[in-house]
Amino acid sequence: MTLLITAVERLRGILGMLGIEDPWIWSAYLFSFGLALFCVVYGWLRFNEEEEEEDELDG
């Protein structure tokens, strides 16, 4: 827990140095970058994955 708080404080310090101090704003930036990264990693890992044609909706 202490480690987590320290990490958040450090992150806050680094992002505060970028000129944006409100955690509500820089966390939105971080979240957005994280989600975009997820898109890239997911698409890359499943680049050639065949979709299951067996559709559960067809019963």
Partner: peptide, 17 residues
């Protein structure tokens, strides 16, 4: 195919960002 959607996700994420 569903694979096309996976691939499109890669480009789409960066594009929107």
């Amino acid at each position: 195919s569903g694979r096309s959607l996976n691939r499109a996700l890669m480009v789409g994420g960066i594009f929107i960002l």
